[in-house]
Structures are given as C-alpha cells and as structure tokens.
Design a protein around this nucleic acid. Sequence first.
DNA 1: ACACCTCCTGTTATGAGATAACATAACCGG
DNA 2: CCGGTTATGTTATCTCATAACAGGAGGTGT
Lengths: 163, 163
Amino acid sequence: MGAECHHPDGVHPGLKGSALNHALGAAEQRCAATQERLTAPRRRVLELLLESNSPQKAYDLIAAFGAHGEPAKPPTVYRALEFLERLGFAHRIESLNAYVPCRIDGQSHRAAFLICDCCGAADEFEPDFTAQLAAATKAGYQVSTITLEARGRCAACSAPASS
Amino acid sequence: MGAECHHPDGVHPGLKGSALNHALGAAEQRCAATQERLTAPRRRVLELLLESNSPQKAYDLIAAFGAHGEPAKPPTVYRALEFLERLGFAHRIESLNAYVPCRIDGQSHRAAFLICDCCGAADEFEPDFTAQLAAATKAGYQVSTITLEARGRCAACSAPASS
DNA sequence: ACACCTCCTGTTATGAGATAACATAACCGG
DNA sequence: CCGGTTATGTTATCTCATAACAGGAGGTGT
C-alpha cells in the first residue's frame, strides 16, 4: 500500500467547500427523514471522511477530529463510525482496517471495492450479487450484508512508469 | 457472534484421525511439488485449523499451539498463517479477524464466505466473480485476490427455535 | 568437508486497532 | 417537570499484529 510505488493517492477528489456542505446537508436530510440524529461528532467524522481522498484509518480520524489539533477519544470516533455504517453513509474496508464515505447512494448494506495495493485507492462500485445471493438462499442463509474486496493494481499503477 | 443465540457451533465437522492425516499428507505433497516446505510450525497451524469446526482467531491458535499447553509466540503463528494463505491452504476472514482452512481446493486467491452472525459458522462457497472481474477490468484494474463476505443468519439459526 | 547464501525460526518488545464499563448530559414524549 | 431513551465523555484495558535482530537448518558449488 503505497510502499511499492509512488503514484498519487486516491482517485476520489475529496470534497470541499460547497460540495462538502451539500453532501453534509443531504445526510442531515436523510437522518431527519428517519428519526435519526446527525449529531456533532457524527457529522464531524462524516465530514472528515468526505474531505479525504483515500480510506481513513480510525486513528487518523481520531487525530484529525478536533478543529484545533486536539484528538478525540477513541470511542467517540468508533461510535460515530458505527452510526455512519448503520445508516449507509460509510463503509468499513475490512482488509485495510479503514473507512470510506459511501460513494454510491447510501442506505445499502452491500459494498464492493476495487483496492489498489500500490497507491491505496479504493474505488467503490455497484456489484452484481445475484449469483452470491442465490447461493446463500440455497444454503438457507438470510443475508444482511455483503462486502466484496478485490485487490490488485489500479490502471495508473499498472502503467509502465510515471512520476 | 454466538452472543445472540445458542445454536451449535459451525457446520464443518473438523477433521480427526486418518482424515486429518490424509489432509496433512495432501498438503505435504502439494508443497513438495512446488519447492515449498511444510515445516513443523506451519504444519501444526494447518492441523489446528483443520481440526477445528469454526473460524479460529490467531490468539486461539497461539494458545493451542503447544502439545502440552504451552502457547506459541505470536510471530510463529502469524508467519505460519501468512504461508498457509499464500499457498491457498487457509483463508483469513477479514470481518472476523479469524482464519479457516480452505474447504474448496486450495491454490486459489479467491474466497467467498457465508458467515452466520448467530452461531459463527463460516461456510466457504465457490462464487461467481464474472461480473466483478468484468467491472474491474473495465476500470483498468489487475485483480490479484478477491474476498467476499456475506453476513447474516444460517439456516439453523433462522429456524424458529431450538436447544 | 567447507564456505556461502537463503529461507525459516526463536525471542523481545512494541505498535495499531478496538471496546468494556461507568458516569453524565441531551432529547423527547407524556 | 418527570422519566425513559439515546448519545456523549472519560478512563482503562483488551485484542490483534508486526518490527527488529539473533540464530539455526537446508541447500549449492567447489
């Protein structure tokens, strides 16, 4: 992850300014619609995720939490992440121990990522889980969440050479 | 996991006696065929995985490592697990921080699991990754490994009530 | 047999990731 | 304004994983 080559981080731009405010506002709306509360620490963690252009570790968020450099206490951030995941605003990438904001639509408990082992980018994509769900049903499972993590090298990092 | 109800653990029987020896022998063969060495600690960790009927945590393996109750040192087991994963003898289940022996065929860097949040069973199945690989290729990725983890409730734990 | 390289193991220590437990405060319905 | 519920603050600790370095085992060429 970034140890192997020096391509630029991430592919998602990372929101700022009005785009960021708009996204936060939309989250606020969705919470209001379901009796959920986007409280200050939850909003702050979502903001940090949206601003970033790569998967964020929990302790990165803890360190960046305070507006003036004071870190948060771990449970503050872990609770916020739990909330954001529950509502579909964020996903945990298990194989990285890291978190990303949902880039698809939110609300879903399905997530699929293409993760570059070189630059660390994690692209969320809309997967086709038809076959998996059929297999699960056949086995008698009631599936609640599906996560798919495909690792390899992204287009930029596969290219001959660059910067 | 197992906190929610009291269904019996796992669905894989856990090998013993001659079945266990046969599986270990087969692993030995496959290693010999590729210039790899199934050394004592590696063999021991594989044995522990094969004997068990549910995903094993690294520190469970560390505790069970010694024949007479003496634990191993963490790196001993983590190195063995790394080897076993590399050769396809074992898989790590990211969302559980736990390990299982490969139940499919070995050698593959693809794995898919149906994980029961109730009894902790983790059934490996052979997934159809056609759509995912197409998406990855379209995005320019060179995929090396794919992991899919579907969580929910297994047939037994979905049933009305039992034990 | 010897020197050499490579891979693997043993050991100590520490780093990273996550949660338990309990006290306090904010929100909301009656 | 009271009481339930939900969220937060805080301390401490637990689980998971790896860095770093020394030593041993197994091959290869001479």
